[in-house]
């Protein structure tokens, strides 16, 4: 993808609010960008074989920290976001450090992170006096619901701009990692930990760096989701379901390519939304059924995802130049 086409694409995306699209289309676009951002955040570590099934934990921490600080102490999300990121860092360190130190990899790592996601979900449910438990909670509306101070934008156009900026930032971070030394050490680590350690790579530190970065993006994605929907629910924002959703959409899109996770978000959201319009709500579960079959076929036949696979030549234009040597 050339610099020119990149800027054209960005320009087109930035022009969307001026098109005066119906709210529903804006809603779908915002959802795609939020989830695209979250999936990108996950794939930053997922592409190096650190398959976390627990990113729902960070999503939940982000959304609930900001929402609860706002509801109970009136702390603006501008302060709440850094606090949420600090909390996400602490959780990533508590679980990540021992995991990496004790060489918990592969499906053991996946299962430990899965436990983490469930712990966060159950803690949210267990603290039902404060969080509303399974019923979820609603961040209190500030005035008319349009306020920079409260990070609430009832107008979809405004939220779109914020989400678009965040998404561009996410892609930028992805590319930054892609072109950094961290990528080379992480690739070495995912190939052979002992050999990488022997050439002087600090395995635990490199993995932690990537994990924390990924946790930050995901937690911020949780904040965006919460502030956009103005409703938080432990089952949709924490726990194993959403964690698996993150992993699978990234795989479908292709986690080894910058735009892959976003393509995953486009496919999954368009699939469920279009089926909902075409078939209606009576056939609830049809989207998931198709999606499940798609996932199985993808993992068997196209483990590198849509964008990551060689046959997807027509889509090649969406790929960023792979890497510059050195």
């Amino acid at each position: 993808m050339t610099r020119f086409s990149k800027f054209t694409a960005l320009f087109l995306l930035a022009a969307v609010p001026f098109l005066d699209l119906p709210d529903y289309y804006m809603h779908v676009l915002i959802l795609i960008l939020i989830w695209g951002f979250v999936y990108t955040g996950w794939s930053i570590m997922g592409r190096f074989g650190l398959v976390s099934l627990g990113h729902g934990a960070f999503l939940g921490i982000g959304g609930y920290t900001v929402g609860m600080l706002w509801n109970f102490y009136g702390i603006t999300p501008w302060l709440g976001i850094p606090i949420a990121l600090i909390l996400a860092t602490i959780v990533a360190l508590i679980v990540g450090y021992p995991c990496f130190q004790f060489r918990i990899i592969g499906h053991y790592f996946a299962l430990v992170t899965l436990a983490l996601a469930e712990v966060v979900r159950l803690v949210i449910i267990g603290m039902r006096d404060y969080t509303g438990g399974s019923l979820g909670m609603t961040p209190q509306r500030y005035g008319e619901g349009m306020s920079v101070y409260a990070f609430q934008f009832v107008e979809k156009d405004y939220f779109y701009v914020i989400v678009l900026l965040s998404w561009v930032f996410g892609i930028w971070v992805w590319n930054l990692v892609d072109g950094s030394m961290a990528r080379y050490s992480m690739e070495a680590i995912s190939d052979d930990e002992d050999a990488s350690a022997s050439v002087g790579i600090n395995v635990t530190r490199e993995k932690l760096k990537i994990t924390i970065l990924s946790a930050w993006l995901t937690a911020f994605g949780g904040v965006l989701y919460g502030q956009y929907q103005m409703y938080l629910n432990p089952d949709t924002i924490a726990g194993i379901s959403v964690s698996l959703q993150i992993v699978f959409a990234s795989i479908v899109g292709g986690m080894y390519v910058a735009l892959g996770p976003t393509v995953g978000a486009v496919i999954t959201i368009l699939l469920s939304e279009s089926l909902r319009i075409l078939v209606g709500v009576e056939l609830a579960g049809l989207d998931g059924t198709i999606y499940g079959i798609m996932l199985i076929l993808f993992i068997i036949f196209l483990p590198r995802g849509i964008l990551g696979s060689g046959w997807a030549k027509p889509l090649e234009i969406l790929r960023f130049p792979k890497d510059k040597p050195g």
Partner: peptide
């Protein structure tokens, strides 16, 4: 993927 499939 099977989990999603069977659940849905």
């Amino acid at each position: 993927g099977l989990l999603f499939f069977m659940q849905s």
